[in-house]
């Protein structure tokens, strides 16, 4: 309990569009302990980024808004906090890095200026001191010759370098929580591996908790201790990484796992999950995965399955998993 850093309870973030209101995040609950790395996975559009933005208080409003739930960070409910108080936590105690390193830095300012900003605003540091700390931060994320690089403009850096700068920027104030929204998706494979290594080393040296958003279960296997699977705005399964690869409970998780190539198994064809992600404006009745589920039964259409405990550190939202139909084989 003393290790608990973040508790999200029944978080609901809705978007108001011309076609109607839709729940991008629809009653999501999870927690993060200090210094722990948790993977958040799911198909495109399932609400991973919106969950992340909700934690930071960065959901674009309009059209989006947190309409319910609470986000307890170090015992304080962020949802109830006034905007200005929330801002003081952003980039300070909770930081975020994004998928697009090429466009996430401001093209008209030097790397140094952008790195120094959090220190100057949150810590009130004077320029020379902030600069020294910024150089230190660049060194920490493995940028060579940081004393020179600090005066570069973003376009003078490669994509991988920029993502390192983004990470350095997120870490300057030594946050307790780093939200990384697909930090490696836009990078090529070797650079991806380097950035993941960097994130792992941050976890060990700084003890920063990381919420790692990705649609790549391979990335999760390498970096995270626990994994949360989202589908259509809801959490469908949560488990320690070891367990999820060994015995996924939810048919959706099983589908996700079956669709990644494995070295230890010779398969002729990779399987995919049939069908498409449902339109959030018209979610199907009952379980949201039911139309695509190979095992859907009458109850799945009739009633939405709740997210319930399913063993140590595990939760699953599936009627069939509970009855032991899915799971270990």
């Amino acid at each position: 309990m003393t290790d608990r850093l973040l508790t999200v309870n029944d978080l609901k973030t809705y978007f108001r569009t011309s076609e109607g209101v839709f729940p991008a995040v629809d009653g999501v609950s999870f927690h993060l302990d200090k210094g722990e790395t948790v993977g958040l996975v799911g198909e495109s559009g399932c609400g991973k980024s919106v969950t992340a933005l909700s934690l930071l208080g960065l959901v674009p409003d309009p059209p989006g808004r947190i309409v319910g739930g609470e986000i307890l960070f170090q015992g304080q409910d962020l949802v109830a906090l006034p905007a200005d108080e929330r801002r003081k936590i952003r980039g300070n105690k909770i930081s975020m890095i994004f998928q697009e390193p090429m466009t996430s830095l401001n093209p008209v300012y030097t790397v140094g200026m952008q790195l120094m900003e959090p220190l100057r605003f949150h810590r009130g540091l004077a320029k020379p001191e902030a600069r020294a700390r910024a150089i230190e931060a660049l060194k920490q994320v493995g940028i060579p010759a940081p004393e020179r690089r600090i005066d570069d403009y973003p376009h003078q850096l490669s994509g991988g370098m920029r993502q390192r700068v983004m990470i350095a920027m997120a870490l300057t104030c030594q946050p307790q929580l780093l939200v990384a929204d697909e930090p490696t998706t836009a990078l090529d494979v070797t650079i991806q591996a380097q950035i993941l290594e960097l994130l792992k080393s941050i976890k060990t040296t700084l003890g920063t908790a990381i919420l790692l958003i990705t649609h790549d279960l391979g990335v999760v296997a390498e970096t995270a201790q626990r994994v949360i699977v989202m589908y259509a705005g809801k959490i469908v399964e949560e488990a320690p990484v070891r367990d999820i690869f060994k015995s996924p409970f939810h048919p959706y998780t099983q589908g996700l796992l079956a669709s990644i190539p494995r070295i230890d198994a010779t398969v002729d064809r990779l399987s995919t999950i049939e069908g498409v992600v449902p339109n959030p404006l018209h979610y199907p009745a009952g379980c949201r995965f039911q139309p695509r589920c190979p095992r859907a039964a009458a109850q799945c259409v009739a009633q939405e399955p709740p997210l319930v405990a399913a063993g140590p550190g595990r939760r699953v939202a599936c009627w069939l998993a509970d009855k032991g139909v899915a799971g270990d084989e």
């Binding site: 952003r90 994004f98 959090p118």
Partner: peptide, 22 residues
């Protein structure tokens, strides 16, 4: 609407700084 504005906000800069500087 650019990504770097979102970054500036994620850093916790006051909105007036986001607008005037970034």
């Amino acid at each position: 609407g650019q990504d770097y504005i979102r970054t500036a906000r994620a850093k916790g800069l006051p909105e007036r700084v986001v607008i005037a500087v970034h």
